[in-house]
């Protein structure tokens, strides 16, 4: 219906956005009648949302014209940011951001590099950046889960860990069970995504491809490709980070520094 009235892309887009936003405003008024006041939150979020996504869209247009290596640079910047965000969850672990950085570089970084060399990810910036960012964001989430779980498991098992140390175990061995459990827990979302693909979840990428005119079957297969890459890059990230992080909770002389009260010895 809107298509008949609005000729240009921009005009059509704005009209669609206005209509979608007004539905949100209707919901807001319904909530208001039940004394749930969302006006401020929703209005702000709506404005923020459209400004952010339009800005990104504009940047994408500029990128499309840029040389290919800018895509790599942008992904690298994303990896650094992701490592910082992940590390913020586990401030009690010294140098957690380095662990996260190495993990995400080794996991998401290597999968992106290999897959774009192999041609699975189109190396055109417009494809590389969005697909790469999906891998990085998922690797970041998995890494945060892994490190957070490791921190809480270690703090909950100080007695066992020190018992192992006291019997002559090296630090890596004494926390091995907790690193392993953290890794397992961190890849649950990626595995469940694979399992539920298409049944409880038709991801946005596929929807987008179908909307923009790709053959549905190819869109479906490519969605699987992305989810499978997310699985490998997230798992590889956590495999590396849970293995590296073990050393960071110990002193030079293999003394456990991470304690429940978080008072760090020395």
């Amino acid at each position: 219906m809107l298509k008949h009235w609005f000729a240009g892309h921009l005009a059509l887009g704005l009209a669609q956005a206005a209509l979608a936003a007004s539905v949100a405003l209707v919901v807001m008024f319904i909530a208001r009648r039940r004394s749930i006041h969302l006006e401020k939150d929703i209005s702000l979020a709506l404005i923020r949302g459209i400004v952010q996504i339009t800005a990104v869209g504009t940047v994408l247009v500029l990128l499309l014209r840029g040389p290919r290596w800018t895509g790599g640079l942008i992904l690298l910047a994303m990896i650094f940011t992701a490592a910082m965000i992940s590390a913020r969850r586990v401030r009690t672990i010294p140098h957690a951001w380095k662990v996260s950085l190495y993990g995400i570089l080794a996991g998401a970084g290597s999968v992106i590099a290999l897959m774009s060399l192999a041609g699975v990810i189109d190396s055109a910036i417009t494809a590389l950046v969005p697909v790469g960012s999906m891998l990085i964001a998922n690797a970041m989430n998995a890494n945060s889960l892994a490190l957070e779980r490791f921190r809480s498991d270690v703090q909950a098992h100080v007695g066992q860990i020190e018992a192992a140390l006291a019997l002559g175990a090296v630090s890596q061995v004494s926390v091995f069970p907790y690193a392993q459990a953290s890794f397992r827990a961190s890849i649950i979302p990626a595995i469940d995504n694979l399992r539920s693909l298409g049944i409880v979840w038709i991801p946005g990428l596929m929807a987008g491809m179908v909307l923009s005119g790709s053959p549905p079957v190819y869109a479906a297969v490519y969605q699987f490709v992305v989810i499978a890459m997310i699985f490998s890059s997230s798992s590889l990230t956590c495999l590396v980070s849970t293995s590296l992080v073990r050393q960071n909770v110990f002193s030079e002389a293999d003394q456990l520094l991470l304690r429940p009260s978080a008072h760090v010895a020395q």
């Binding site: 007695g159 020190e162 140390l165 006291a166 019997l167 175990a169 002389a253 293999d254």
Partner: peptide, 12 residues
């Protein structure tokens, strides 16, 4: 450290 801890047993 681990050598020392093997020679010095600790029961908590």
């Amino acid at each position: 450290p681990r050598e020392l801890r093997q020679s010095v047993g600790l029961v908590m």
